[in-house]
Design a protein around this nucleic acid. Structure first.
Lengths: 339, 339
DNA sequence: TTATATAATGTAATCGATTACACAATTCTA
DNA sequence: TAGAATTGTGTAATCGATTACATTATATAA
């Protein structure tokens, strides 16, 4: 009487067995129409709802999927998660989220935990310091779809959804060139990480395509942070032949640069054009709105979810490896528009 | 051989029963030291990990908790979720997130879904349009801790974690008065929602405490959006006796107001001081940084998680109703500092 | 009319753990 | 040294579903 009703409660009430109830509820053709209707009606009357845990145990499917990000409250990540949730909720999946705090160790713990929880798939943006991918091997061994997004590492059997960082960077640089800039600085974060490496390459190729010489001293590595951006801008403008454009792989760095330029007598965009990367929400609210490369996070999340769905439904044991590359979208605003 | 090893596999290998293995793993005093060590070692060798679904089914505890918000990618909500996750992950709980999109219907679906998934607790910020609370009754009936945060409705048996909206609003208004403002406009969103009602009350009380007459025409209702903020600022400044301060319950409204003021010859903060609410990330990056009331989302999340832990551990069937009210924190920046 | 499909339902094993109860072997008590 | 207590394991039920394999009753075929 107390607690949720089970199929046994329904069976007892109708004087049939639980097996019949189960079949009736699952619309098994071997059950008579009359019984089906009776069971369905009784189930509704008793407010019956299947126990997902029992089902999960029996079927070996939990209906849960794990999503792992460095920090949930970064706009990019929370937007990706939003996309994932919106795609997966209608299909009956629950989204479990965990944060690595950029720690590779914690990432290992999380993966183990998710495996114990019997998730049916894992969608992850790697912690910055993850070099080793051993903890992912068991995921693959169990044939659980594993999908990297944004940050990834090459690994057999893993799918990924990323943006074309090269293209985004190329487009941004071309845009600056078209604005008449020919001394374009590039602020990077860590060129050993693939995404930043690709951005650097896109920048370089754009220069080459417009016969603009590449100058080593215009490429600066810094943390993604406003203060660093200020410092770097100061150094750059002190060069003998200072830049007339700054393309930063981080909106925060770009913001710092703009602030330093403005408080030191430079006009943006007239003297120096600036473009950032990520299209953080704040970029559009600045008095001088900032151009930036949008990483289409919502789409990325939806796409990652779709890749997961394809793989989880695909019963055959063939390991699929799907690489989706989305096109970023350059948002041109005031900071790079000399009209 | 294939798939995860179970206690049966361990038992077979050691020629004992699964019951003994289970007891050994759980450090049951009735098991001899020798057997315990043997089992533990074998388990480790075989890479055994308990199947959480089986455990969950047996114990009726899923180790999952549901968190429900309108949209995940709003800074406030994603920060609260971060707090929740950080508090609960170390305790072995998995956080399942869902979004209502501010739809009461979807909220009902989500609650049902979470109940079927046998979550051990639900932490939720109500959809804006939720009036009816019937869907929460089954949650309470099953003795599943239910915790509202930020947006709530009175309901027996439910705990809540909120900020003191009244206090935040009172503090902000007092701050404006101390800056010498005596004609303070108040931008609200929907005074039928409790949080906005409290903010209005705090504003009013601050006026009363400083003998400033309340003027109906200075209280304006608008959507939380920059364009609306501009429109409203224009109307306000057209009044016979226009305000010299604007306190908005939304940062977006405040931003719009500032933009309109600046482009129409008013100086902020000299002519009009402005304070927002929520401390959205962009507020600190504006050229004229914006004062705002911080809703301490991280703390709120952690506190909600703690309330959940208290209640879930508390075995006795007494329904606890805990109301936690956190103090918001007024962040004073340039938009309201006449120095 | 008898053999044979076919339809509708029941029996019991299963998923992977936990645990009440039973039982044998050993140790203790008087 | 018989009976009681203790120790260490085994047996089997349980959580709530699904499902392979009966089994029975009815319909159809020859």
């Amino acid at each position: 009487m107390k607690g949720k009703p089970t199929i046994y409660d329904i069976a007892k009430k109708l004087n049939i067995t639980a097996a019949t109830v189960s079949r009736a509820l699952n619309n098994n053709p071997r059950i008579s129409q009359a019984t089906k209707e009776l069971v369905l009606k009784t189930a509704k009357d008793m407010n019956y709802e299947p126990n997902k845990l029992a089902l999960a145990l029996k079927k070996g499917k939990s209906n849960n999927i794990g999503v792992v990000v460095p920090y949930i409250n970064r706009n990019f990540f929370s937007s990706v998660i939003r996309g994932i949730e919106e795609e997966l909720f209608p299909k009956g999946y629950n989204v479990i989220i965990s944060q690595t705090h950029e720690s590779a160790e914690r990432e290992v713990d999380i993966i183990n935990n998710l495996l114990n929880a019997q998730v049916e798939g894992i969608i992850i943006s790697l912690a910055k310091f993850t070099k080793n991918t051993k903890h992912f091997e068991q995921v693959l061994k169990k044939n659980i779809p594993l999908i990297f997004f944004d940050r990834y590492q090459e690994m057999g059997g893993v799918s990924s959804v990323t943006i074309d960082d090269y293209q985004g960077s190329y487009d941004a640089t071309i845009h600056l060139i078209e604005q008449g800039c020919d001394r374009i600085a590039h602020l990077t974060v860590d060129p050993t990480l693939s995404i930043y490496k690709h951005r650097l390459e896109g920048y370089q190729q754009a220069l080459i395509d417009h016969s603009i010489p590449f100058r080593e001293e215009l490429v600066v590595k810094l943390k993604s942070d406003m203060e660093e951006g200020k410092r770097v801008a100061e150094n750059l403008m002190a060069l003998e032949n200072p830049p007339n454009a700054i393309f930063s792989t981080s909106d925060y760095g770009a913001l710092g640069a703009i602030k330093w330029l403005q408080t030191n007598g430079y006009k943006v965009p007239e003297d120096v054009c600036v473009v950032g990367f990520s299209n953080e929400p704040f970029t559009q609210f600045l008095d001088l709105s900032m151009s930036s490369v949008d990483q289409v996070p919502l789409e990325m999340g939806k796409m990652a979810a779709q890749v997961f769905l394809e793989q989880v439904n695909d019963g055959n044991n063939v390991k699929i490896e799907k690489k989706v590359v989305l096109s970023p979208s350059l948002i041109i605003r005031q900071s790079s528009t000399k009209k």
